[in-house]
């Protein structure tokens, strides 16, 4: 017996908790002023167009895609900066791992400068640092990559706004409804709480979900510090009265 009690039908995703995400307009982050839709978003539930999504295999990965310390090296030397391993588990809201999904990341160099044509900060470019990488999660939903700690940098928003050190993340999940771009911050950084972009998220607990924890256990002695950053994608509802193939 198949019934469809809610828009989106059986096995759709939990509705997005928009109060947990930043609103479309957050005045302290000025760029949102003219780019935020004024109309309410139209609730759609999900159809097959949202319940499906692209899949990417290991064949798209280059050998050094998950090593930002070496993947732009011009002269064979490592990128400058504090050496890190960043790793974590991608799960859904039901706490199930999300395996075999593509994770992309990008960041500024140790001085807080991006390799980008519109970048205007005076900090030096590192000739051996590009600033992007990607990985595919393993069977348990884990990803990892090696990088250097990005620097904080000033940006033209308020009179003297600085972004806290952060790494950008893009995650696909297994359905286009799960598509997510977010940012990772570093435990103990006081600048997080002065940042109009982090604070575009209204709930302090939600901001804390984006703060990676120092993980001494996975530190490589005499080499790299480790930070753990778990990411949660949307989860699917159970189906009433019926078991789904995906299991519940």
């Amino acid at each position: 017996m198949a019934i469809q009690p809610f828009a989106g039908g059986e096995g759709g995703f939990y509705a997005r908790d928009r109060a947990w995400h930043p609103p479309v307009a957050s005045p302290a982050y000025k760029s949102t002023t003219l780019r935020a839709p004024r109309h309410a978003l139209l609730s759609l539930g999900q159809t097959r167009s949202e319940l499906t999504g692209p899949a990417f295999g290991h064949d798209i990965l280059n050998p050094l895609d998950n090593d930002l310390i070496r993947n732009f090296s011009q002269d064979g030397s490592d990128a400058i900066g504090q050496r890190l391993v960043v790793y974590g588990q991608i799960m859904d809201e039901n706490a199930r791992p999300v395996p075999n999904t593509l994770v992309e990341f990008w960041q500024a160099n140790a001085g807080g400068r991006y390799r980008h044509k519109r970048e205007g900060y005076i900090a030096a470019l590192d000739p051996n640092f590009g600033g992007c990488g990607r990985a595919i999660t393993d069977a348990d939903g884990y990803y990892h990559f090696r990088t250097i700690k990005p620097g904080a940098y000033p940006w033209p928003n308020g009179g003297n706004d600085w972004r806290p050190a952060h790494i950008h993340f893009s995650v696909f999940g297994h359905a286009f409804a799960q598509r997510l771009i977010t940012q990772m911050y570093f435990e103990g950084d006081p600048m997080i709480w002065q940042d109009p972009i982090a604070l575009s998220i209204p709930d302090r607990t939600a901001v804390e979900q984006l703060i990676a924890r120092l993980d001494r256990h996975n530190t490589t002695p005499m080499d790299t510090l480790a930070y753990r950053f778990d990411i949660v994608l949307r989860g699917r509802r159970s189906t009433f009265f019926e078991n789904r193939v995906e299991g519940n």
């Binding site: 947990w20 930043p22 809201e93 575009s200 998220i201 979900q209 994608l233 989860g235």
Partner: peptide, 12 residues
């Protein structure tokens, strides 16, 4: 659900 979706941030 036991977990909350990670909040979005701008792509910048």
């Amino acid at each position: 659900p036991p977990l909350k979706e990670s909040p979005s941030q701008t792509a910048g």
